[in-house]
Structure formats: structure tokens, C-alpha cells
Simulated scan of single mutants.
Amino acid sequence: MNTAPLRLAMINSDGKSAPPLPDPEGVVTELYELRLRAFARTPYDQLFTELGTLDAAEAAIAAGCDAIYIDTFADYAIERVRTAAGVPVIGAGAAAVAAAGAHGRRFSVVTVWPESMAYLYDERLANCSGGQHCAGVHFFSPEDELGRLGTRAGVKARMLRRESDIVDRLAEACRSAVRADGAEAVLLGCTCMSPIAGRLAECCDFPVLDASALGQQAAFDALRCTTAPAPRARSLRAGTASRLVDTWLASGFADEPSPDECDVCVIALNDPV
């Protein structure tokens, strides 16, 4: 008797062309794209980022997926998704922070984003198991990097091209973080850093942890967990986010120029960048 594979919905927050990990036997990972994309450069903008994430998650719930994986360090809308879903919901940030700080390991976070994005890291580290073991957060880019979102010159496009200069500089940023913090490992602070995680690990003599891969692995584990989840209040308004996004898209507002030029940096690995 054939058993249908378990379906993992990966909310594709940074526009990957494929998940970071291959599927284990009996699991199929499906990418769910965001219809509404907005870069959370401020807490105000985060509201729209979370609405787009919740909309994609509601599509996965309606499609009958067996678990939802939110592929972003910030775990956008994770608690809101959990109140709408009757299946496990895993966030890259919470899973990665827990793995980095396991057994009391002292770790540093290195992110490609500038220091103005610190509010996202403060929130995740304060609210995720293992966050107390973070020795420091290090911001790689200057503030004007946000003006290059979605362009050929942006840091994400450069990482996707695996430019040796950006790899070398980020590797040095990892080594400097460990020296400054007395840390035992570095946790990469954005899932968009996943394409160069292996290269960075080769350049360092300590663990360099890929939040995207750690999150997906935690989602695989959740699919196979037989322990019943703790009871959680369910929203009486599930589905509202998708109707709001429908209205947003129908209004034409989404076609207006974005203050971020490109709402979020979305470039597939095989795209010409």
C-alpha cells in the first residue's frame, strides 16, 4: 500500500529557487511564494511583511500541507500563523537560535543587514530558546545597503553570484565576531546567506550555522514528531489575511512605486543578476 508523502510548505521569504536541503524519504517540500512582499526595514513596514507571510501560510493551510516552515530569521507572523493552522509551524529564527545555543554554546550572529535592522534580532533573541547564549550581533553592511535592495549591486545578488570579495569579507566578519565575543560558533543572521554558508564554513575553524538549513531540518523533525502539540487558541478570523491581500492586489496599490525600489530582494539562483 502506497503512502502519500508528507507535505512541507516552505514560505519562500527571500525568493529561493530551491530549498536548502534535499527532502528525506517520505517528505516533499513545496515552495510557497509571497503575493505581497515588503521589506521590514522598520517595525511599521514589518506589519506588511507579516501580512504577506500570513497570506502565503493560509494558502498552504488551504492546500492541506502537513507542516509550515517560515524561511526567515525574523520568523515573520509565526504566532499568527500558529493560531490559524492545525499543523506544526516552524520558523528559521527560532530553530536556528535553539540549535546555536544548544548545551549552552556561546555563539555570535553575523548578518548582512545594517544596524538599523537590530530590532528584529533583539526580538528573536529575547524570545527564542537559546537566545540567552548569544554573545553579540554583528551587522555587516552600512545603512546605504538598503538602497540597493533588489539590484545587481545589492549584497544578496553578490552572494548569489558567490563573488569572492563578498565571501572573503563575510568570512573575516565571522572570524572577527568570534574573536570579539569569545564565541564558539557563528549563526548566519539571514536566510538569504544560505547560498554561501558552505563557503564561509570552509574559511573558518569554528562552526558556521546556516539558519535556513537548520530551520528546514527542524521542520522535517516536526513532521515526524509523535508528541501532541500544546493546545492553542484558534483564530476565528482565519482566512482574513488572504482576503486583505486580494483587496490590496485588486486595488492597484501594489503596482505603485515602492520606497524600497524592489519590495524585497528576490533573485533566483539561475536568474541573470
Rank of each mutant, 00 (worst) to 15 (best):
G150I: 06
C134N: 05
V137C: 01
V155E: 02
R152D: 15
A157E: 01
C134A: 12
D144C: 06
Q132M: 08
G130I: 03
F140R: 03
G150F: 01
F139P: 04
G131T: 09
S129K: 13
V155W: 01
R148I: 04
D122P: 12
G130D: 04
V155S: 07
G131V: 03
A157W: 08
L125I: 08
S141I: 04
K156Y: 04
R158F: 02
A126Q: 10
K156C: 05
F140L: 08
L149Q: 10
D144A: 12
S129T: 13
A126F: 07
L146H: 10
G131Y: 05
S129F: 04
Y119T: 00
C134V: 00
F139N: 02
R148M: 11
V155G: 03
L146F: 07
V155L: 14
H138N: 02
P142G: 11
G147S: 14
S141W: 00
L149S: 06
R158I: 06
S129P: 13
A135G: 15
G136F: 05
G136R: 02
N127V: 07
H138E: 08
S141A: 13
Y121E: 03
E143F: 14
G131D: 10
Y119G: 06
R158M: 12
L149A: 12
H133A: 08
G131E: 08
R124D: 09
A126S: 15
Y119V: 03
G136Y: 02
E145R: 08
S129H: 15
G150Q: 05
L149C: 07
E145F: 06
H138W: 01
A118F: 03
G136M: 07
R158A: 08
R124K: 12
E123Y: 08
E143Y: 09
S129W: 04
V137A: 03
E143M: 10
L120F: 02
E143P: 04
E143K: 03
E123N: 09
C134M: 00
V155H: 06
A126D: 13
A153T: 15
G130Q: 00
A118Y: 02
F140P: 10
L120K: 08
E123W: 09
N127S: 15
G136A: 05
L120T: 13
E145W: 10
Y121C: 04
G147C: 11
R152H: 10
S141F: 11
Q132V: 05
S129Y: 06
G147R: 15
S129G: 12
V137I: 03
C128F: 02
